[in-house]
């Protein structure tokens, strides 16, 4: 098992190197002069020269690449032009918000998706199945940003139940502990400061999580359904029924444990995708995470920030996929005990 993990990690190195290289050349070889693009048409020759020197753009490409690689290996992603802050610092501040949103969206999508998928499989070719699968099809065909606006229109504007955006009401400002507001809320609850923070954070998470979670929900429901149908056909399900095991136990214990194996992989991949897919959702809900920050960096033509952001998210994505693979082999006895 350890050998397997090490092997997978080693196989990952060329991919990671490729990712860094691609990110570098994407920016370096972009049409036009990056310094000019960043500073705009009216920048003076002086300013341009200064920025080029700052970014190392005046050196030959090969040398630029070597320098970039060296910096990245030391965990240095450079400075944002806009804020002059270290990009790693910018990311660190925003990561908890993004993870918190992606996480709650994934939880919502997984629970609802699995429940609906199992129901559809059990009631195959009934209205339960048809409506779930039609809903799932609508889910993957829907523009997320539009769904977000419609949700705001209904639940924030018309009904006034939920906030339109942000992570927390301004009046409840507090000094974050972990920067995961739900977690902070729980900690404060135990410190005897009441549940206000927790519930306010939760309220702010509902709409963005639904918007962000809709596509994964649809995909998880479809996967669960087809996986469950496949498993229910298996001989061992018949064995369990023939042995008089109660039907609910056959379905929710015997069959589901098998059916979830492929679903867990899908959930993991979706979680990875949500970290980046949050660009639209974070922008609409004014969610102070990495997605919104990348969007602003793009609008501001802050290329070092864009470069750092995409590199970070991609590496994160690759690592999550690896973690999912490893998790799969840990929970599947057929692989684990080989």
């Amino acid at each position: 098992m350890l050998k397997f993990v090490v092997k997978r990690l080693l196989l990952l190195l060329p991919t990671l190197l490729g990712v860094v290289t691609l990110v570098f050349f994407m920016i370096a070889l972009s049409p036009g002069d990056p310094a000019r693009v960043m500073l705009g048409e009216r920048a003076s020759a002086e300013q341009l020269k200064k920025l080029r020197a700052e970014l190392g753009l005046d050196k030959p490409l090969g040398q630029q690449y070597a320098l970039y690689l060296g910096r990245v290996l030391h965990g240095d992603l450079g400075k944002s032009i806009l804020t002059q802050q270290k990009i790693t610092e910018e990311l660190r501040q925003r990561l908890p918000a993004t993870i918190e949103l992606a996480f709650t969206a994934t939880i919502f999508a997984s629970i609802a998706g699995i429940v609906l998928g199992v129901a559809a499989a059990r009631k195959r070719n009934t209205w339960v199945d048809y409506s779930t699968m039609t809903g799932a099809l609508f889910g993957v065909s829907m523009p997320v940003f539009w769904l977000a606006l419609v949700l705001i229109m209904i639940f924030s504007v018309a009904l006034d139940w939920l906030p339109t955006g942000g992570r927390m009401d301004v009046r409840l400002y507090f000094t974050p502990i972990t920067n995961f507001f739900l977690l902070d809320g729980i900690i404060l609850l135990f410190k005897g400061e009441g549940g206000k923070i927790f519930f306010n954070a939760l309220k702010h998470l509902i709409l963005p999580s639904i918007a962000l979670g809709t596509i994964p929900l649809a995909i998880i429901a479809r996967t669960t359904r087809s996986s469950m149908l496949e498993v229910l056909k298996q001989d061992y399900v018949k064995t369990a029924r023939a042995a008089g095991v109660p039907e609910w136990k056959v379905v929710y214990h015997y069959a589901l444990k098998n059916a979830l194996l492929p679903v867990i992989t899908v959930i993991g991949i979706q979680f990875g995708l949500l970290l980046s897919g949050a660009i639209l959702t974070e922008t609409i809900f004014a969610w102070p995470g990495i997605g919104k920050w990348i969007y602003h960096s793009i609008s501001a033509r802050d290329f070092p920030a864009v470069q750092g952001g995409i590199l970070f998210i991609s590496v994160f994505f690759v690592l999550i996929n690896l973690a999912v693979d490893l998790l799969y082999s840990v929970i599947n006895p057929r692989i684990r005990l080989q």
Partner: peptide, 30 residues
């Protein structure tokens, strides 16, 4: 009645046992 008065054995021992539970757990379940 199933598994208690009337029990069944199937043709394919490869696929008739649940791959993600131990043998002992599957017998105990009955």
């Amino acid at each position: 009645i199933r598994g208690s008065r009337i029990s069944m054995i199937f043709q394919e021992p490869m696929t008739s046992l649940n791959p993600v539970f131990t043998i002992g757990a599957q017998i105990a379940e009955v």
